[in-house]
Design a protein around this nucleic acid. Structure first.
Lengths: 234, 234
DNA sequence: CCATCATTCAAACGTTTGTTTGAATCGCCT
DNA sequence: AGGCGATTCAAACAAACGTTTGAATGATGG
């Protein structure tokens, strides 16, 4: 089966190196020669093992995103099994999305911070490739978590919930990708920027409050001057 | 002064075409030949008018982002002048960020939706260029709006507010860039996705509620099962 | 021990990339 | 008219790109 010439981890080293380079330079700006040089691998090896550059990035994503989203759904399953009858809270549902990502961050073998930053960028990256990979990988997650959030937020209409989930994924992917963008606008030193757990501890309440926000009025954009704390409208 | 050969709008046509192509294909994946061909302009014209490809994208951003952020600060100035003594509300401050972008969206001469989507992607795009352009263009905006939000949210500590602004910019830029990413995860048809005003009407309450969220506890991530509507903690 | 197969390797393939060049073109001012 | 300066243009540049090829390599199974 496995013929093992001097180094048989060629495949793995290509994937790991490509992951890092795609993260810090982007897909289009990363050449196969950069990857193979840094991985100390022959240029032709990438075509031998993957077939093309596009097939390579496809595999870089699928091997990470599959387990991550599976862990999210498993977390949600566990949550709904524990609390029989009663629906899990908004915070718990959000944590089921965020905690698996946090675990990936901690585990370099699962991709570590590199993959999370790459993933955060993938959503806003153009090109046909990502528009094929991401929907396939996320469809099930979106359906399941929207159901769970709908149960936790019975007062929020379907359309409104869809939008708020969209905003939530925005803040989430931006935060995951953001170690760079963060410093762009940071006037003061962000302490704890290197500690993902403290970021999560701040992000979850933010998102939960946003999801529970009072429903927007029919016409005007801004609430009155005195618009005060989140009081559910309906 | 202005010698006007048959077409003197060469510069402008390059900028407009580059804006559109960078938006839909990304910076690295857009070649000068694509731009000059679509703009019906000679290839060498871009080097004559701008000097290099990087200088071109730099100008694409600066001519749009400058006025946009200036309008945001002007909006905030007007807001603070009107309400003497009392601090503007969170919703009003958020609207000062969002409304000028909405106006850009409506006005094709100011860049239109193309530039907003390009801008939304710019934050998560790698490369040294963006890490030089964006901080310079946004520094003043961040400082001013953080001051305004701090006055509107006296209970939120400085560190916490910085993070929440980060989350806010995330949801905002993701939403602006998102007409593509939107369809990625949308299981049901998002009505109003083409109407920016209705998006804003949903986004502002979401962000305001997130900014006003109860402060996170010291240790645990998720609130209790019964964690209910936004009650300010401190 | 030789044949076999998966893997590695150096070299080259034809395109496309950003950039440069030098001559042609055109409106303006004296 | 005529020369000037700004602009356009076709052509070429070297470099880098993704991809392909065909021979070397080395462990495995008959």
């Amino acid at each position: 089966m496995n013929r093992k010439p001097p180094c048989a981890d060629t495949r793995e080293r290509i994937l790991a190196t490509a992951e890092g380079l795609f993260m810090e330079r982007g897909y289009a700006a990363t050449s196969l020669r950069m990857i193979t040089a840094k991985a100390r691998v022959n240029l032709a090896a990438v075509h031998y093992h993957f077939g093309s550059k596009e097939a390579l990035i496809r595999e870089v994503f699928e091997r990470r995103l599959g387990p991550l989203n599976a862990a999210r759904i498993a977390h949600l399953d566990r949550l709904e099994a524990q609390s029989r009858g009663r629906a899990p809270s908004v915070e718990q549902v959000i944590e089921a999305i965020v905690a698996p990502a946090l675990q990936v961050n901690r585990d370099p073998l699962a991709g570590g911070a590199d993959f999370l930053r790459l993933l955060g960028r993938a959503f806003s990256e153009p090109g046909q490739t990502m528009r094929e990979i991401l929907p396939a990988q996320y469809r099930q997650v979106v359906v399941r978590f929207k159901e769970a959030l709908a149960r936790a937020l019975p007062g929020v209409p379907d359309q409104e919930l869809t939008w708020r989930m969209h905003f939530m994924f925005g803040a989430l992917s931006y935060t995951m990708a953001g170690n760079d963008a963060l410093k762009l606008v940071a006037t003061c030193n962000l302490e704890g920027a290197d500690d993902p757990e403290s970021i999560i501890r701040r992000l979850v309440p933010f998102l939960a409050a946003g999801l529970r926000a009072p429903l927007p009025g029919r016409s005007e954009v801004a609430g009155g001057r005195g618009a005060m704390n989140g009081r559910k409208a309906a």
